[in-house]
Amino acid sequence: MVAPASAFDNNEKVKIVRRVLAGLAFTGIRRVRFLPDSYQIVGRAADGLHSDVEIEPLQLAVHFTVEDTVRAAGLLAESGAACIVTLGGDGTNRAVAKACGDVPLIAIATGTNNVFPQMVDGTLAGIAAGLIACGHVPSTLARRTKRLEIWLDGELADIALVDVAISQHPFIGTRAIWDLSTLHELVLARTEPGCIGLSSIGAHLCPLAREDERGLHIHLGDQGQPVSAILAPGMIRTVRVQRWRALRCGDAVEIALRPCTVAVDGERELHLERGGSLEVRLTGRGPRLVDVREVLWHAARAGLLRSPIGAQGEDDR
């Protein structure tokens, strides 16, 4: 509502999922399980799709909240899913990452700020997911990512895949952060140039490749050096950075500001009035993320895409 961002409506998501299913069928996948939604996106996508893929909803009570996504990811992991495909932005993938365990994740970008997911056609994502699930490409192509862990009084309270922002904002409110003047400090797991959101501040200070094991801790203040922030599509602002430092996996940042509001991957989730310990740790315990283009490069070099891969037998996933 405050930036000219593109929107993927439900009809477009139906088309994306239909393309994913076509890609899966091409690789010989025979069974797909999915999280039902109020618009019946997967059901509509499968309608009229001529393939041997068995598509069934997960058996869980759905309340159409983010907790549905967390529980669905956990159920898929427990049932032995070979790959999970998501449609969403950083927030959706963060919810999946809370419970997907070691299951490889293919993240198709349909959010506002898509730092974690990849902008890729659904057909290609489906082919890559099928190749990973059937074991036709090395499992090493699903690489473990970093994450930020929020520890409150010694207990793990939440995680982030991209950024943790500490704000002086007095309440959670509408969650999204648009007023940069309230920001006190940032802890970033990703600082890749070309990304949109709070992580762009870090990218303009110290650009790091996706596979780099480091992160950044940034202090902001009125007297600091000016740095541009591409806060959202079409929204470019300037912030003042007082100081920053690189973090390595295992490093922890103590947050002393009180009261404060903690935002994870762009949305305010936690408000602290006083007392207690608050720590943000950079770790290597993020989900195993698949780079679709890298999988397709490997498959093409191995000659896997010259014709449909076909049926894989009774042990198909």
Rank of each mutant, 00 (worst) to 15 (best):
L141R: 06
I106N: 01
S6W: 11
T69P: 06
V14M: 11
P36L: 06
G101M: 02
A252R: 12
R71Q: 13
D158S: 15
R190V: 09
K98H: 09
I236H: 14
G74W: 02
P57M: 06
I166P: 10
G135P: 10
G202V: 11
A311I: 00
A189P: 00
R240S: 14
A232C: 04
I172M: 05
R31K: 15
G91D: 01
I150Q: 03
G310W: 00
D102W: 00
G111K: 03
D47N: 13
D265H: 04
S200P: 12
V292M: 02
H169A: 13
V53G: 01
L296T: 06
E213M: 04
A302P: 01
G173Y: 02
H219V: 12
A45L: 07
H219M: 11
R18L: 02
D315S: 14
Q225G: 05
L296K: 02
A128N: 05
V120I: 15
L58N: 06
A99Y: 04
V187S: 03
R94S: 10
H50P: 01
I159A: 04
P308C: 05
L21N: 08
C83S: 09
L156S: 11
I172N: 03
R237Y: 08
R33Q: 14
R248L: 07
E254W: 10
T110S: 14
R248I: 03
P117Q: 09
G284D: 07
P233G: 08
